[in-house]
Structures are given as structure tokens and as C-alpha cells.
Design a protein around this nucleic acid. Structure first.
Length: 342
DNA sequence: ACCTGTCAAGTCTGG
DNA sequence: CCAGACTTGACAGGT
């Protein structure tokens, strides 16, 4: 099994490279000249895109092929009071440049819209802004010229005291999205509400690939389900992207492997928080049993120390290899894990 | 240079 | 029914 590691949004190693500089609405409305304010927002967005490109080059330098782009590229883009503003046209060249770099280097990028995007909601207003938010994210991918393998990951959402009803509402409201948006979505199990098994059932029902977060599963798993027991079904939700069981049905450059999220609990008192780094043992513990049944997988590292945590994990992988574990380090951000035949 | 309260948005909990 | 927690990077305003 080929494993590619990636990280999220920002670097702790690159200086002055924030991809998510912003301006709050409160400060925007304080400005005397609205037009000048809009130009300033566009300028900030352009800087954010420029730093995103710098981050992608930084990834390339370390062999990192998997990266989550920040959702905060364009400040106030989906704010209800800003709907007469079109930030996309003036940023077209910058988006195209980022997309070209992603394509030219065979990278996998994604977005993770914030928790304000929730399709299980009973509120019409919340549903509308969720739709607006997803449209915004998909539009940015389209401006980058990236195909459907560039995806947006969301959670099912709140339960409102009735999980079954909330789940059905999710299926209905999510299913009503236009295919252009729906086909770019992935669904992740939550650390509080919808468990891995529940999310999987909804992912199957809506035909959406599932991103398994093994940390969320560890802290939200009342039935004591083993993640490996769900894995074959989770893997098969990625069938549309080329993976049906063991046999890829298209050339490697067109495939999109299943993706998981890994992080390590911050502490015993805050088990849901993210630690600075990732425990290599728990990663291998999950990967080894599924290695034989999964040709490739992408692993998103969610750690406070971002890219530094990824690089540290790769050092740990080298040590694991030296210690005789079934891991082979391929380059700066990829390993091969051998399947232990059970 | 450094610290603190605040930020557009949702949902859950506890009072 | 409402305030505060949750979570988190960055800003604004202060020292």
C-alpha cells in the first residue's frame, strides 16, 4: 500500500506565508470608501493566493503531494451583505496559476468548509448559506481548472435531538444540490454527532466518498466499532474515483485514493483537541491491517505543528523501518506499508 | 515587540 | 429562552 501524507492550510516552517489573511466585516463597514475597501479585500485575497502557491512549492520541495487549501482565501466572500461584489473575476489569473501548479505536479488538493456549512439543518436560512458556501468553494476549484478530484469535505452536521430525522434531512437537502457541487463533496465522521458507522451509511446512501477521521472515531464510537471492520465499505465509497475493491479501473494519473484524517489527542483532559505532533504508532496500527486490501491511501495530518508534524512523522517512519516494521520510506512524504496477511 | 479581546456565519449545553 | 462553550488564526487596539 502506497501512503501519501499531507497537511492542512498553513506552514509553521515558512515565514510570512499566511494564506488566510483577512479583514472582518466590522472593520470593512468602518471604511469610508466602499469601493476602496473592496479593492483592499481583493488585494488581500491575491496575497493569500500567492502564499498558497508558495506553500504548494514548499510542498513540492518536501515531496508532499496532498494539501488542504484554506477556506479563508477570499475574506468576506460569502458574507450576506457582500453579494453584489464579484471577487472572482479580478482573481482569475491568480486562481489559474495555483491550479496549474497543482495539475503540473500531480498534487491532490481539497477544501474543508467551516462548520457553518450544515445540511442536516432544519433552518431554511442556514441551508441557503450552506449552499452559498459550497458554491463558493466549488467555484474556486473551477477557477483553478481542477477536475472533480479536487473535493470539499464536510460533516453531516447537528442532530437537533433526533439523529434519525437529522440524517434523513441531510440526505434530502444534500441530494437536492446540483451535481456540479454534489460530485465534489466528501463526508467525514464527526467527533460529537454522527459516528463513523452512521456517516458511512449516509455516504453510501448519497453516493459520496467518506473521509474516515480515526481520531474522531476514537472519541465518538459508543458501540466500540473497530474502524478496520468498516474499512472495506469506506474504501468502496471511493469507487467513482477509480477504486473498486483492489483493482483500479483507470491509469494511475487519473486515480484518487481514499483519504483519512489522523491526529493525536492533545491530552487526557482534552482528548478531542489536536496534539502538536502525530503518534506514529497509532497511524501504523490503523494502516497495517488494511494494507493488503487497499492499494493506495492518502493521509491528512491534522496537528498543531502542521507541516513540521508531517516531517517529524516521516522521521518516525524511517525509525520504524530501521526497527524492522513493515514500512518502507519512499521519499520525503510517502511510505509503503506491507499488508500483514491476517 | 508583545498581549488581550474580538471576529460573519452554527449547534449544544446548562442555567 | 438566552448566555457561554466550542475552536482557531488573525486582526485591532492597547501597552
Amino acid at each position: 500500500m502506497i501512503v501519501r501524507f499531507g497537511f492542512v492550510a498553513m506552514s509553521v516552517l515558512l515565514e510570512n506565508a499566511s494564506p488566510s489573511r483577512t479583514m472582518t466585516y466590522t472593520n470593512f463597514v468602518k471604511l469610508a470608501d466602499r469601493e476602496a475597501g473592496l479593492r483592499r479585500l481583493e488585494r488581500i485575497a491575491e496575497e493569500n493566493l500567492h502564499n498558497t502557491l508558495r506553500l504548494l512549492k514548499h510542498c513540492k520541495y518536501s515531496d508532499i503531494q496532498v494539501y488542504r487549501i484554506t477556506s479563508k482565501l477570499i475574506p468576506l466572500a460569502t458574507h450576506a451583505e457582500m453579494q453584489d461584489w464579484d471577487p472572482y473575476a479580478p482573481l482569475a489569473a491568480s486562481f489559474a496559476e495555483v491550479g496549474a501548479f497543482v495539475r503540473d505536479n500531480g498534487m491532490r488538493v481539497s477544501f474543508h468548509p467551516d462548520h457553518f456549512t450544515v445540511f442536516s439543518t432544519p433552518r431554511e436560512e442556514v441551508l441557503r448559506s450552506s449552499h452559498r458556501d459550497l458554491n463558493h468553494h466549488v467555484r474556486m476549484f473551477e477557477m483553478m481548472g481542477l477536475d472533480e478530484r479536487a473535493t470539499c469535505n464536510i460533516h453531516v452536521g447537528g442532530t437537533y435531538g433526533n439523529k434519525g430525522e437529522a440524517g434523513r434531512r441531510f440526505v434530502r437537502q444534500f441530494g437536492a444540490l446540483e451535481p456540479r457541487i454534489r460530485r465534489r463533496m466528501t463526508l467525514e465522521n464527526d467527533d460529537k454527532t454522527f459516528t463513523a458507522a452512521e456517516t458511512l451509511a449516509l455516504a453510501e446512501e448519497t453516493g459520496v466518498p467518506m473521509v474516515l477521521d480515526i481520531h474522531h472515531h476514537a472519541v465518538n464510537n459508543p458501540d466500540g466499532e473497530r474502524a478496520e471492520a468498516l474499512w472495506d465499505r469506506i474504501r468502496d465509497t471511493w469507487g467513482r474515483f477509480g477504486w473498486n475493491g483492489l483493482k483500479p479501473d483507470r491509469p494511475p494519473e487519473e486515480l484518487l485514493p481514499p483519504k483519512i484524517h489522523v491526529s493525536t489527542p492533545k491530552s487526557a483532559t482534552d482528548p478531542r483537541g489536536h496534539a502538536d505532533y502525530v503518534d506514529p504508532g497509532s497511524v501504523l496500527e490503523f494502516l497495517r491491517p488494511i494494507a493488503a486490501s487497499t492499494p493506495a491511501i492518502d493521509v491528512m495530518i491534522e496537528a498543531k505543528r502542521k507541516d513540521e508534524a508531517l516531517l517529524k512523522l516521516m522521521e518516525d517512519m524511517k525509525a520504524a523501518e530501521a526497527a524492522g516494521l513493515p514500512v518502507r520510506v519512499l521519499d520525503g512524504a510517502r511510505v509503503e506499508v506491507s499488508g500483514s496477511v491476517v
